[in-house]
Design a protein around this nucleic acid. Structure first.
Length: 203
DNA sequence: TCCAATGAGAAGTTACATCA
DNA sequence: ATGATGTAACTTCTCATTGG
């Protein structure tokens, strides 16, 4: 695989004067500019320079079927396929390499689109939750204002009252002649009552 | 155990065929 | 004619295996 064939030698010799290439160290060889492949036009049939040709539908079907069975191609299977298809084993190997590359790229695309859908759904849900948090904060703010208002109201009232034993505990209701209304102040857990509804509890 | 040779595969590139 | 697209064939690199 890593041998340098005649065509490559010709190309290399175009970049390096005679004898120089032989003296180069491996790392120097690696640093050479990327070689351009020779054009094929008009050279069909010459060894190693077969003109590119499309595979027949039958060849394609058999290759596809074989790829479905197994993406990897062992040496024996490659030779068998090649003789069945009337192709060079090298062509079969190349076809499998390219097919694997196409398969992988398609898989990646599918995976990307799946992740993108998941991401989009998550972003929408995040927005919804952020909105809900804003609404709840707003409700909390109103509730606090209402509590503040009622507290002030109550303090004004108590400062005018002659009794000094006033307390915020439910029993104080007795002092307003509201015995038995304790349950009216019961607020179920996790059940918010809007500010003005508090007012209704007193009326 | 080391090392060079070899083969296979992945990734990236090039060139050709085909089609709009 | 020409630009876009698909794909066969290629290059380069890496890794595993094998034999001396």
């Amino acid at each position: 695989m890593n041998q340098i064939d005649d065509d490559q030698m010709i190309l290399i010799s175009q970049y390096y004067p005679a004898g120089i290439y032989d003296q180069l160290l491996p790392e120097q060889v690696e640093a050479k500019p990327r070689r351009r492949r020779k054009k094929n036009k008009g050279e069909a049939g010459s060894s190693g320079m077969m003109r590119k040709r499309k595979l027949s539908e039958q060849q394609m079907n058999l290759l596809e079927q074989s790829f479905e069975d197994e993406h990897k191609l062992e040496s024996e299977r490659k030779d068998k396929l090649a003789s069945e298809l009337g192709l060079d084993p090298r062509q079969v190997a190349v076809w499998f390499q390219n097919r694997r590359a196409r398969w992988k790229s398609k898989k990646m695309e599918e995976e990307y689109s799946k992740l993108k859908t998941q991401h989009d759904t998550t972003v929408v849900e995040k927005c919804r939750l952020e909105n809900e948090v804003l609404k709840l904060k707003d409700q909390l703010c109103n509730a606090e204002k209402e509590i503040q208002r009622l507290t002030e109201c109550f303090e004004r009232f108590s400062s005018n009252s002659p009794s000094s034993s006033f307390s915020m505990e439910p029993p104080f209701l007795g002092e307003f002649g509201m015995e038995g209304l304790e349950n009216a102040f019961y607020v179920p857990e996790n059940n918010y009552i809007h500010g003005y509804d508090w007012v209704n509890l007193y009326t």
